[in-house]
Amino acid sequence: MNRNVRITLHPSYDVLAATTAARLITRLLDVQSERGEATVVLTGGSVGIATLKAVAESPARLAVDWAKVNFWFGDERFVPADSPDRNAGQAADALLDRVGVDPARVHVMAAADAVADVEAAAADYTAQLAAAARREWDDEDGSGDAPAVPRFDVLLLGLGPDAHIASLFPEMSGIRSRGVPVVGVTNSPKPPPTRVSLTLEAINTAQEIWIVAAGADKAAAVGLGLAGASPVQVPASGARGVNKTMWLIDQEAAAKFPEQLMRRDT
């Protein structure tokens, strides 16, 4: 197993969400103390949104300068802006509307009623990422070619029972995409069928990737993801942060992986 991969076991879903929230607050504080601002990529899903709610409910959230946190999304359902299925809306309700973020720093993927099609939504997000990357590059040294995406300090990922991450599904074109940071996804095996997603290349630019998974239905995916399977068949196995990759899982999700290889949080 790669040295920068860390596996942490939690006794329950609630402890997983609360502990991940505490980790995120601490990481944002550390990055802000170093660089003045921090950037996080959010995920949807039940445990992802539960984590954001736990952040909003933590007294420690007051230590973060939320006006200097940049927010991006790993994927989005291509549905109308007012749909309850939108990750952006769920994240706003759980955290973003509750802690005083700067709206200009919240970068959402275009909704189905805002652009012509999913490819236009992917192109729009690609442009947003490139613009932010250029601003960062100019701030740092003002020379050379900017990367396709800005610096991601923490990138959160959920995990599907089929080991998909973001909206990158096994054997589908999205997980095979190269040379682009964002793709449109059609015929998703999980409804809704049309989505927008960061590619694996973009995901793996993150300084730290945190894969958060809970429930017995995720156990097989956790086992396969940590066993080094091909990312085309097991997308989660391909997620590797520049500095660290963390698998944060509850007891049920850990059922098919050797417990002695995990660090236990209580």
Rank of each mutant, 00 (worst) to 15 (best):
V180I: 11
A130Q: 12
K190D: 03
I49M: 03
G48D: 00
I211H: 05
L24H: 10
D153I: 09
E37F: 12
A104D: 14
P103E: 04
D93P: 03
N2T: 14
V64S: 07
F73T: 08
G144N: 08
Y13L: 04
I211A: 06
A63Q: 15
V40T: 14
K218L: 06
A63H: 09
T8F: 09
T20M: 11
A50D: 10
V180T: 13
T20F: 06
Q260T: 15
Y125R: 00
W247E: 09
T20S: 12
K256R: 15
R23Y: 10
W66L: 10
G144M: 05
D145G: 05
F152H: 02
P11L: 01
T266C: 06
V118F: 00
D162W: 00
T39K: 01
L95V: 05
G100D: 13
M172K: 06
N70F: 13
A60H: 12
L248A: 15
A92E: 13
S58H: 13
W247K: 12
Q90T: 01
F257V: 11
M1F: 12
R27Q: 13
A236I: 14
R134G: 05
P11R: 09
R35D: 12
M262N: 02
I203A: 11
E136T: 13
R77S: 01
H10T: 08
T43V: 14
A221D: 02
T186H: 01
R263S: 14
N70H: 14
E259S: 11
G100A: 12
V185Q: 03
G44C: 00
A63W: 13
Y13N: 05
A229T: 11
L159G: 07
D145H: 07
A114G: 07
R240K: 12
A133D: 08
V5L: 06
A56I: 09
D102P: 15
W210N: 02
T266L: 11
V242C: 08
G174S: 00
G142F: 03
T205E: 04
L159T: 11
W72G: 14
A253G: 10
A132V: 11
R151E: 13
V79C: 08
L155D: 03
S83F: 04
V212G: 06
E171L: 13
I49G: 02
K190V: 07
F71T: 10
A110R: 06
D124G: 08
P59C: 02
T194Q: 03
M1D: 08
P192I: 00
H107I: 15
P193S: 00
L52P: 10
Y13S: 04
E201L: 09
V99L: 12
A206Q: 03
L29I: 15
P231C: 04
I203R: 02
G238F: 14
T26P: 13
A111Q: 00
A163S: 15
S46V: 12
L224R: 15
G223D: 09
L198R: 05
V185M: 01
A50G: 12
A120Y: 06
G142N: 08
